[in-house]
Every structure is written in C-alpha cells, then in structure tokens.
Design a binder for these strands. Structure first.
Lengths: 190, 190
DNA sequence: CAGGATATCTAGCGGTGCTAGGATGAGCGT
DNA sequence: ACGCTCATCCTAGCACCGCTAGATATCCTG
C-alpha cells in the first residue's frame, strides 16, 4: 500500500508544479502567455493531465490567486505592525497594498480582476482573503467614527484597488501616484 | 467626382455600422460574444472588411469606448447641474457614475478596464474624456482644501472605479453598495 | 505470469484573431 | 461603346486557443 502513498505524493507534487509554472509564467510574460499547451510543456506532461488536476484554466488561475492572498495578507500585516501610530498605519498599509500590486501585477490580476470562479465557499481562500481584509479593517478602525466598519473598509479597499488598476492600465499618470495615495490616506485617517 | 463622394459616405456609414454592431452585441451578450466573425455577419460583409476600417478588434472596442465617454460625461454633467448644493452634488455625481457603470457594464469595461490602445493622443477621446474628468473635478473642488485638485479628482475617481469594478466582479456584496457609496461621498465632501 | 484497472498520450473538435491571394466589378481613357 | 486598370471584396487558410474522446502504455493485483 505504500505505492499508493507514493502515487499520491507524486500527484500532489505535480499539482504544485502546475500552479508554480502558471505563476512564474504569468509573472514573467503576463496571463496571455499562460496557455494550457505551454503549461503542459513546462511540467513535461501532456495537456490533458492538467484537466485531471483542475477543471480548467480558470481553476489554475484561481489556485495561483490563492497563493497571492496569503502573500498580500502578510505584507499588510507587516506594514501595520511596524507603524508608529494609527495614522501612520493607514499610510503604510496603503503603500504596502500598492507596492504589492506593483510588484506582482499578474498575481494581483488573478486575485482581483480576472479569475471569477474563485472557490469563495472553500476553506482556504476565505482564510487568507479574510486575513487581508481584517488587516485593512483594523487599520481604518480608529478612523471609522460612526460609520459601519465593514463599509469603511470596503470603500478604502476600493480606493486602493481603483488607484492601482487605473494606474496600471495607463489611465493615471504614474508620476502622481504618491500624491493620490496621500489624498486617499488623508481621507481615511481623520 | 460625385461617385467618390458617395463611396466615402458609404464607407463612413459602414464604419458606423461596425461600431454600432460591436456596441449592441457587447451590451447584449458581453465582450466575449463579440467576435470578428459575428461582427462581420452582423454588418453583412466578410471578416477582412473589418480590417480595412480598424487595425484590429482592439481598435473597434476603442471606438465603442469613445462613444461611452460622451455618454458618461453627459450623465455626470446632468447630475452635477441639478444638485441643490455642493455637498449634494458629490453624492449625485457619485451615484450617476455608479449608475452608468451598472446600466452599461460592457461599455464601462471597454472604457476603463479592457481596451488599452485607446487613441489618447487623438482629438476626440481627450475631449469627451476630459469633459467627464472636468465634471468630477468641479464636483470635488469645493472640498479639495489645500490638496492638489487633480490628485483629489483622480483619487475620487479611483474610489468610484474600485467600488464599481469590485462589486461587478462579485468581490463586494451588492446589498451594501449604497452604504459604501455614502462613505466615499462623505470622505470627499467635508 | 496473465488480467484488469489506472494513468497518460495522441489526435482532433470547434472556436479565436488575423491575412494572403484570387475573383469581381466599377470607372476611366480612347 | 469598348477594353483596360485598379480598387474593393471574398474565399480559404494560418497558427493558435481551451478542452475532450478514444487509443495506448504502464503498473498493481490475484
């Protein structure tokens, strides 16, 4: 029966390889370059093997996105923890969020703009996603006032998301990024 | 020489038909349904004709987006003009922006998320796009304070864009939309 | 060692955006 | 009015996409 164990281990390893290949390829050349054929070549198996692990390309992208949620949550937590005061925390967390989107554009897209069939109902995603959201919530809490904390958090998040996506798509000049970020931070920390 | 005039008229008319077909098809079934083959069938010409008018599908989408800028600018202007006071103007303009995105999702996508090769350098786009941007700027001007008006406007816009896109992609609950909009408006009108 | 289940691959389907090259027809000069 | 030229348009096809059915090879079991 140990053979079965080895099989499962190899299978899990291969699944990991698929997600890693998708992530690396997306980071290097963008999601358009991530095709099932290239992915299959990368892991040195044939195309149909992908479909024995994932229901389709979307599911692979979703798996990549899941990794991103953990990384983002960690970045936000770190920024908040090392901030001197609540006001600075808002600025630092906002900067960390924007920096993450800049550093991992493909990952950010998979998380927040492309993949839709994310397993929102599963265990893992809500965990890491909720961790990131909770970091944002704790960051703005001191300045929420009478407003509903969840609404304030979601709105703050939307502001960050808007800034990031509009800049990345060339609709906002990159040069004024810091100025805009400062405006957003100011509006949510007083 | 009148034949040439007629030719050019017919050609312009056909170009209009292409853009209209793309717009209608996108509004009805989403941009995924807009293929060059369906577009060609719609205007009752063969596929290659499209490429004698536009450099590619992206250019067709950009042309559709241009129409959208005018409509959005008009909606924002109307909302601002009929507002009782500056504070109400911010709320009304924000609501008008969100309503536009809800009413014309495919158009909104073409304008702000998908098409990238928009002729930002041309005449037409900056006109209507700038009109919309100017409406936003005038709306938030009374509350800009010492901050750079352009930065405030762009940040306000980003907030609206983020709210709209995150909700449309299922990341934000639709039920709390008004509450979030109120938070954003509050943060930019005091 | 034979039989059967399991894992994997080859080949292909229907679709995409886009283009090369040939047919067709309208306008021109004579 | 005729024949030629040239612009216009279409047919056919390329290379690619995500995905899948059926054949093949590989491994474990009795």
């Amino acid at each position: 029966m140990s053979t079965q164990g080895r099989r499962e281990r190899e299978r899990a390893e291969r699944e990991r390889a698929i997600v890693a290949a998708a992530r690396d390829l997306a980071l290097a050349e963008g999601w358009d370059a991530v095709t099932t054929r290239r992915l299959a070549a990368e892991i040195e198996y044939s195309q149909p093997v992908l479909y024995s692990h994932f229901t389709g390309k979307d599911a692979i992208m979703a798996a990549v996105a899941v990794e991103g949620f953990a990384e983002l949550a960690a970045a936000l937590a770190s920024a908040r923890a090392s901030a001197a005061d609540p006001g600075q925390a808002v600025a630092d967390v906002a900067a960390a969020y924007a920096a993450f989107a800049e550093r991992r554009p493909a990952l950010y897209d998979a998380m927040f703009t492309l993949a839709v069939d994310l397993p929102f109902a599963s265990q893992e995603v809500p965990t890491d996603l909720a961790r990131g959201f909770a970091e944002l919530a704790e960051t703005v809490r001191p300045f929420a006032g009478d407003d509903d904390l969840e609404a304030v958090t979601e709105t703050f998040w939307s502001g960050l998301h808007g800034l990031v996506t509009l800049m990345r798509s060339g609709r906002l000049r990159r040069a004024d990024h810091d100025r805009r970020l400062a405006v957003l931070v100011d509006r949510f920390s007083r």
